[in-house]
Structures are given as structure tokens and as C-alpha cells.
Amino acid sequence: MLDINFMIEIFPRVLKASFLTVQISFLSLIFSALFGLLVSMIALTSGKLINVLIRCFVEFTRGVPQLVQISIIYFGLPYIGIYLNEFWTGVAALSFIGTGYTIEIFRNAVLNLEKGQNEAGKILGLNKFQILIYILYPQIIKRSLPPITNELINVIKASALLSVISVNELTKIMNDVIFEYFVVIETLIEATVMYLIIISFLLAASRYFERKLVV
């Protein structure tokens, strides 16, 4: 049967690791939301060439496996002279992956708004950026909350991949414990339950936002 004492013994380590997982995911989500806002603003206001470049970036983050993107960041940042520790490399990698998705979320949210809003702003004499910042973005923040929560779930799932670049998050700790004590089933169950709790909670939150906020 399951070794309950062992599960209690490793629980502090697992808990600490899950906090790190949540921390990395939230930080990356914040960064990718900020970059997403900024880049979607650029995409909506500028010409064709820049849009094509942004399109290429989005297709790249969607088309290349997340694991490959993580190794690209892991090997690529030192290559161009940026040295970060594992934690911030992880954050950089997840933000890079997430930005591709958040750009699309914000851009589509703006494009789904009514066209009249844009025209009304123009008549009031606002320029493109002012229209975006004062009129369009305040409206889309509410609408993009459910897809952003979904994106957070994706980021948490992707953060499990950071174990391959030795960030001490939940999956890495799970692996370490398994190969320290050779107790497989208990450790796997504990780590899985942690993920289930975190992600189920977020899934419920996203469903709640969807019901409450979308008009």
C-alpha cells in the first residue's frame, strides 16, 4: 500500500516547489500580458511590414514545440550575451512562449469591438494611440479575462517543462525525489495532486469569469 509517512515527509519540499511553479507562472503571465498589450498596440497602429514581422513571431511561438523554444532561450540568451540564473531563464522562456498567444488574444479582442468606437474617437480628434489607450483597451480588459486565465493554465503546464533546464519547480523536485529514494508511486501521486489542485482551481476561475463577464 501507499507509504503515507513518506508522503508526509516529502510534503514540505513538494509544497515549496509548487509555490515556485505558481510564482514562475504568474510572473511569466504578467510579463507576457504586458508584452502582448504593447505588441498588439504596435500591430494595430502600424503598417503592413511590421504586421508581417509580428505575424512571423506569433506563428513561430505556435509552430515550434515549447520544449524546443525553452532550449532556444536557454542556449540563445548566453549566446547574445545575456546571463540569467535558472529562475529568470525560465521566466524569460515562458514569457516568450506566452507573448505569442497574448498578442493574438488582445488583437482579436480589439478587432471584435464595434467599428463605430474607432470612428467616434477619430471625430473627437484623438490620435491612434489615444484611441487605443483611452477607448478600446479599457473595454477589452474585461473581455480578455477568460482567455487570459486559460493562458495561465497553459503556462503552468508549460512550466513543468522547465525541469529540463533544471529550474527547481514541481516536476524537477518530483524527479529528484524519485531518484533519491526510489519511491515512485507516492511521489508521482503527490506531484500530480498538486497540479490537479492548482489547475482545477484556475479552470473553475476561468469558467466563472466566462459566465460572469462575457456579455
Binding site: I156, L161, I185, T192, Y195, I199
Partner: peptide, 20 residues
Amino acid sequence: FVLCTPIIIQIYAAYLLLPK
């Protein structure tokens, strides 16, 4: 269960548990 666990955990689980 599938929606709420990262795929890497599922991979480790199958890799370690199937031989058991």
C-alpha cells in the same frame, strides 16, 4: 485528469509505472 495535469507528468508516470 488529462486536462489538469501537464503532459510531462503523464509521460514520467507511464515511463515509471508501466514496468511496475
